[in-house]
Design a binder for these strands. Structure first.
Length: 645
RNA sequence: GCCAAUGUAGCUCAGUUGGUCAGAGCAGCUGAUUUGUAAUCAGCCGGUCGGCGGUUCGAAUCCGUCCAUUGGCUCCA
């Protein structure tokens, strides 16, 4: 007998060789029906695998992320089986589970496949799922594994097997499909009740563009049809909120082929929005002791050679431009930091001057690959809400925390309630990708970790290989209203650029010391931030940001004069208002204002004119009743104050 | 940059196998209407069907190429 400890810390004896599924059965039939995998001593494995010694066991179901992942991985196998039956002779790359579903990379070996073929594959998958095929694990020797896939002629699997050690290779068999796989899998395919293959695209074998391009098919599965429907609804909602669609509809931004791809043009309403965001942050920065600075859009290539950007990113920059006579070369600036370093160097600094915080909404230009451009989230010219803090080592933590305060305030003002903090460190195995000494990196990474510990941030994750090339970062990823994650703000600790630019301050010991630099951008970039905001709010911006806050709707021409009077009053109160004087019915004017997502509509007619009132209608909510003009202004101002508190 | 798909009026789209196929709705303009909480009516304007080549008696429709967009891949200071 062995002892199994369950998550509630109860301990139960079982026969040696008991499986997760057996344990589930001992608890309840329902659980046994729903169990997808078992976590044994922290390791996720098949619910059908035997447990041979005392262990902590957690049974994983659909309600658990690891349970979902197991099901999706099994779904990838199911899809492969369906594909193999429909298109004999295809070869398979890899087929993992991903955040929302799974994919499999397939070499269709001559078959022409398009999205029109997906329903056929889906149908086959559903048929096979109904057969409740079990997943059978088999440990195989390297030789057996190689023999099997040599016979099958699948060079991709052979390549994978060759990188594995003998003794750690296993196959999984389900129905007619056998795959090299470490598992785990769900007990049988009957758990897969709803299937949707979502897209098809090319993907290089092993992500290497010099190697063969395989066909990647993405899909997602669910244990209930209803959950698939909900998921599809979510996708629909995401489509409606697509910032490219909303940006056009709400006249926030546009692109012009004549200007160039990836170069956004901000329309008047977008410009107001941006200006509001910028002035809000500028106010926070003023309170935070930042000094505004301004730098030009180009800089001598030598500047970027000093910073290291030239060596690291010349391929990702626009080609240098040069002076016609002297032939001096200039880069469109890809970063603001080198400029700010030069501003720091404009005069000598005492330790008493520090910290110095230079802030600039700096527009930068980067050559993004054409296939990478995407709405406002990936562009070739964008404006960073950049600032660089030059401080002494003893000030680092406090400065870092000050930056985090600003970021938190912004998240709150914009109603991003849910966020994850990612600590991005360098990949210790690829030090050559970064500049600077190990000592500097250790110091920077240590500082970030300490701060994270000290302020007790929720949801901290550590990612290796995600650092900037000059230093580690703390990135803030918000979850939007649909639960999608977006990377926004970033804080970076940098010991390297001060060294490369030979930045100094005179210490109390009268010796030269090296300041530490903090790069930070709470919004990240204005373009990206507005895109995220559009999708998060579905275009219904908070009142303080709305490009148009109030629309006055006169009932008929007779009340235009009164409407104009109201308009004037609102404008004097610094409220962004417009009047709709078209000869349309009120219903029409309301409809149009609702679609434009103007937060407040003021209907004015005979009643209102007589009493010097306005009838207030709130976007998305409806009639709020009658207000006199002054109290309406108070209503607006109170709401804004509340939002920015 | 790579693979695939798409590209018709400002916007959203329809155009069967190449031959009155250049259309609709919305927007815009003009006129009528003077309107009370999500679309008043009528008329008009508007496109060398992404660009350039080619096949054909004839191309929005077929082929090539370039550009752009979309979905992925790779990349992201």
């Amino acid at each position: 007998m062995i002892n199994i400890t369950l998550p509630d810390n109860s301990v139960k004896p079982f026969e040696e060789g008991v499986t997760g599924l057996d344990i589930a059965k001992s608890i309840s039939e329902g659980l046994a029906r729903n169990v997808l995998a078992a976590k044994v001593n922290g390791q996720v494995m098949d619910a059908t695998r035997s447990i041979r010694e005392d262990a902590k066991v957690e049974l994983l179901t659909w309600n658990n992320d690891e349970g979902k992942a197991t099901m999706w991985h099994s779904s990838a196998h199911l899809m492969a089986e369906a594909i193999e039956q429909l298109y004999p002779g295809v070869k398979f790359g890899i087929g993992p589970d991903i955040e929302n579903g799974f994919y499999y990379d397939v070499d269709f070996n001559g078959y022409e496949i398009s999205s029109e073929d997906l329903p056929k594959i889906e149908k086959k998958m559903k048929e096979l799922a109904k057969e409740k095929q079990t997943f059978t694990r088999k440990d195989v020797s390297k030789k057996e594994a190689l023999d099997y896939f040599s016979k099958k002629g699948d060079e991709y699997k052979l390549e994978l097997i060759n990188e594995l050690e003998d003794g750690e290779i296993s196959f999984y068999e389900s129905g007619t499909f056998v795959d090299l796989c470490r598992g785990p899998h769900v007990p049988d395919t009957g758990h897969i009740k709803a299937v949707k293959l979502t897209s098809i695209a090319g993907a290089y074998w092993r992500g290497n563009e010099n190697r063969k391009q395989l066909t990647r098919i993405y899909g997602i599965t669910f244990p209930k049809k209803k959950e698939l429907d909900e998921y599809l609804e979510l996708l629909e909602e995401a489509k409606k909120r697509d910032h490219r669609k909303l940006g056009k509809e709400l006249e926030i931004f546009t692109f012009s082929q004549s200007v160039g791809s990836g170069l956004p043009l901000w329309l008047p309403k977008g410009a107001i929005l941006r200006e509001k965001l910028e002035s809000y942050l500028k106010e926070l920065q003023k309170q935070g002791g930042y000094d505004p600075v301004i730098s030009p859009h180009i800089g001598n290539v030598n500047l970027y050679k000093t910073s290291g950007h030239y060596q690291k990113y010349s391929e990702d920059s626009f080609k240098p431009i040069s002076t016609p006579i002297e032939g001096e070369e200039f880069f469109l600036k890809p970063m603001n930091c080198p400029h700010h370093c030069e501003i720091y160097k404009a005069k000598p600094h005492s330790y008493k001057d520090l910290p110095i915080r230079y802030a600039e909404f700096g527009t930068v230009y980067r050559y993004e690959q054409s296939g990478e451009l995407h709405g406002l989230t990936r562009v070739r010219g964008f404006t960073q809400d950049d600032a660089h803090i030059f401080c002494r080592p003893d000030q680092l933590k406090e400065e870092f925390i000050g930056v985090m305060d600003i970021i938190m305030k912004i998240f709150k003002a914009l109603d991003f309630k849910d966020y994850v903090t990612q600590i991005s460190l360098r990949d210790p195995d690829r030090k050559e990708d970064y500049i600077g000494s190990d000592e500097n990196w250790d110091k920077s990474e240590q500082a970030i970790k300490e701060v994270a510990d000290e302020v007790d941030l929720p949801n901290v994750v550590v990612e290796y290989g995600e650092a900037a090339f000059y230093g580690p970062k703390m990135d803030f990823m918000v979850k939007d209203a649909l639960g999608r994650k977006w990377q926004l703000g970033t804080i970076q600790v940098d010991y390297n650029l001060p060294e490369r630019f030979d930045l100094e301050y005179t210490g109390s010991d009268n010796q030269a010391h090296r300041p530490i630099m903090i790069h930070r951008a709470p919004f990240g970039s204005m373009e990206r931030f507005v895109a995220v905001l559009l999708e998060h709010t579905a275009g219904k911006f908070p009142l303080w940001l709305a490009p148009e806050q109030v629309k006055i709707l006169p009932i008929s021409e007779k009340y235009h004069n009164y409407g104009q009077k109201v308009l004037k009053f609102l404008k004097n109160a610094d409220i962004r208002a417009q009047i709709d004087e078209r000869s349309e019915k009120t219903g029409r004017k309301i409809r149009d204002a609702e679609l434009e997502k103007v937060p407040y509509m003021l209907i004015v007619g005979e009643k209102e004119e007589e009493s010097n009132n306005v009838s207030v209608r709130k976007q998305g909510e409806g009639d709020l009743g009658s207000y006199d003009i002054e109290s309406f202004v108070t209503l607006i101002n109170d709401e804004i104050k509340e939002q920015l508190k």
